[in-house]
């Protein structure tokens, strides 16, 4: 299964499932990471982490650890 942190910059994907729990899951949902949501990978930070994503029109940075909890499919 493809994880969000494996997607390279410039690609678009859609969310398939979240494996985060509790607080982090709530936050991810609140930011709009629901099943089927489209995500664009915008850029990586100066050392390659965290990465900025376009999630429902907002620029949200996630660390590798968080992004790896989002399974995605190519758009």
């Amino acid at each position: 299964m493809l994880k969000l942190d494996d997607v390279s910059v410039g690609k678009n994907v859609t969310v398939n499932d979240l494996s985060s729990t509790e607080l982090l899951r709530e936050r991810m949902l609140a930011l709009g990471l629901t099943k089927g949501a489209r995500i664009e990978v915008i850029r990586k930070g100066p050392s390659g982490d965290p990465t900025v994503y376009n999630i429902r029109g907002a620029m949200i940075a996630l660390r590798k650890e968080e992004a790896s909890l989002v399974s995605v499919v190519p758009f």
Binding site: L24, M28, M59, A61, L62, E66
Partner: peptide, 10 residues
């Protein structure tokens, strides 16, 4: 203690 990282760049 729980830990999350999400950072919005406005």
């Amino acid at each position: 203690i729980p830990s999350t990282f999400t950072l919005e760049l406005p």
